[in-house]
Design a protein around this nucleic acid. Structure first.
Length: 459
DNA sequence: CTACGCGACTCAGAAATATCCCG
DNA sequence: TCGGGATATTTCTGAGTCGCGTA
């Protein structure tokens, strides 16, 4: 959808954003634009956004209709300096179409210094939902042993996580029923207690006696209310989201404006993990700016952390592709905010990847010959390596890495264990088996052939 | 030289959300 | 044109891999 922006050219000390947005909205209704103008009773095909960070007001089309675009652009053409004067002090620049330049990263012009990810990098930092939009309590009580208890906002917020999971599971659209899982509930309960007041902690002794039904009911009511919102309210919500994206959703890298992939710091939530992760059900807490490292151009203005907060550190690493990073408190692994996949960085690394694949293709026959021979080698090591390579090549199984007990126990080609191999009647797998019988591993592929489809698997 | 830990990046599964379609 | 179910798309983030620095 087209978007047009007006830069605010005067220094703004005090600015009433609501009034300015209203002013711009009404610009397109001025009588003097005659047949181009939008009448007051007509549904406007645009919403107005204000970006404090980028000092601009934009209109974003909500309709793709050619006619509407022509009218908007026609009005832009006819705008006079007087139209752009919001107040005596606050003046807008002429509107321009907001579009992201496509950087042809394969092009000479777009090349950046060798060995570096970026030569310039400007952005507004990540978005902290819990700081910018503090939790608004709904007041529904949690029931324990048939008695209602009012929760503090902090308690309620966590209780919502669990209640929402129950709602999702009831809808039948999820594949896992976690709220009936012992480990999940135990982990959740242990962590939930850390958020309870001393008083509630004393009363709530047994997790199974907690009854979330009133909270579930309230959350469902709130969802219904949202469904019933008027168009105006829906628009207001849309505007909010679009303004957030305008403020935080773009970075300028190597002088090209590109979208940021996921500019929101992961908010507090229940940790689910995949499969039987032993940490499933734990509560992943909120991350504060004090834990976040910002990577930005040394020449750029450092983004301002949310009020009352500071960054952990600000670095200027030209070899790093990320703009913000923090440690995930559950896994202790680094998490990053990256630029979007449509940008030059991803384009370039994809290019490298596919070139490597082309190169590999040249050696494929040689590699296949080699591992086929290795499988019958008298050397243990060669036999193992050959088998792993065979599994990867023929069955698309991943390599497999070392893991510790605190992670989901999955295995790859190199980490398969005896218990993963099931012997089956060789007749069932005629083809594969005849080929492999002499390799003493004949049954392994049969089981894998029966596995789920996919271009790459772990088991 | 090797082993190891960890930082940085890509991949992919599941859920959420948007869109489509039909009565 | 409305509701709701089916289907497609997007978002979110856990997990896998690799390579580099260090001991």
């Amino acid at each position: 959808m087209n978007q047009y922006c007006y830069d605010i050219i005067t220094d703004l000390t005090q600015l009433d954003a609501t009034k300015l947005k209203e002013y711009v909205r009404k610009l397109y209704q001025k009588k003097k634009f005659k047949d181009l103008r939008f009448s007051a009773d007509e549904k406007l095909p645009y919403i107005v956004l204000y970006s404090k960070k980028d000092k601009q007001v934009c209109i974003k089309m909500t309709s793709k209709a050619k006619k509407n675009i022509e009218r908007i652009e026609g009005i832009h053409f006819k705008l006079k300096p007087a139209d752009l004067k919001f107040t005596e002090d606050i003046v807008l620049d002429k509107p321009y179409i907001f579009e992201l330049e496509q950087c042809a990263w394969w092009d000479e012009d777009c090349k950046i210094a060798k060995g570096q990810k970026w030569s310039t990098l400007i952005h507004n930092g990540p978005y902290f939902t819990h700081l910018v939009e503090p939790y608004e309590p709904h007041g529904a009580p949690l029931v324990y042993a048939n008695v209602e208890y009012d929760l503090t906002p902090q308690e309620e917020r966590i209780a919502n996580f669990y209640a929402r999971r129950i709602i999702s599971e009831m809808s039948g659209n999820v594949t896992q029923i976690w709220t009936k899982d012992k480990v999940f509930n135990k982990n959740f309960w242990t962590d939930f207690k850390k958020y309870l007041t001393a008083e509630h902690k004393k009363i709530f002794k047994d997790f199974s006696k907690l009854d979330f039904s009133q909270i579930i009911e309230r959350l469902e009511e709130l969802k219904e209310v949202e469904k019933q919102m008027t168009q105006k309210e829906k628009d207001a919500k849309k505007i909010k989201a679009a303004e957030r994206k305008q403020d935080y959703g773009y970075a300028i890298i190597n002088d090209i404006k590109e979208p940021v992939g996921n500019f929101t710091i992961e908010p507090a939530a229940i940790f689910y993990g995949r499969g039987n992760n032993p940490k499933r059900g734990k509560i992943k807490r909120d991350i504060d700016p004090e834990e976040v490292i910002i990577n930005i151009d040394e020449k750029a203005k450092v983004p301002v952390a949310p009020a009352g907060h500071n960054w952990k550190q600000v670095i200027h690493d030209h070899n790093a592709a990320w703009i913000a990073s923090w440690k995930d408190p559950i896994s202790n692994e680094s998490k990053y905010v990256y630029l979007g996949a449509e940008g030059q960085l991803k384009g370039r690394s994809d290019f490298v990847k596919y070139e490597k694949a082309r190169k590999l293709n040249k050696y494929l026959n040689k590699i296949r010959k080699q591992y086929t021979a290795d499988i019958t080698s008298h050397l243990n090591k060669s036999r193992q390596l050959g088998t792993v390579l065979y599994l990867i090549d023929r069955h698309g199984i991943r390599v497999g890495n070392e893991k510790d007990e605190s992670e989901t126990d999955t295995v790859g080609a190199s980490t398969l264990r005896v218990e993963h191999v099931k012997l089956k009647d060789p007749v069932v797998a005629k083809q594969t088996v005849t080929e492999l019988e002499r390799d003493h591993i004949r049954i392994v592929p049969q089981q894998l052939v029966d596995g789920p489809p996919g271009n790459s698997r772990h088991i």
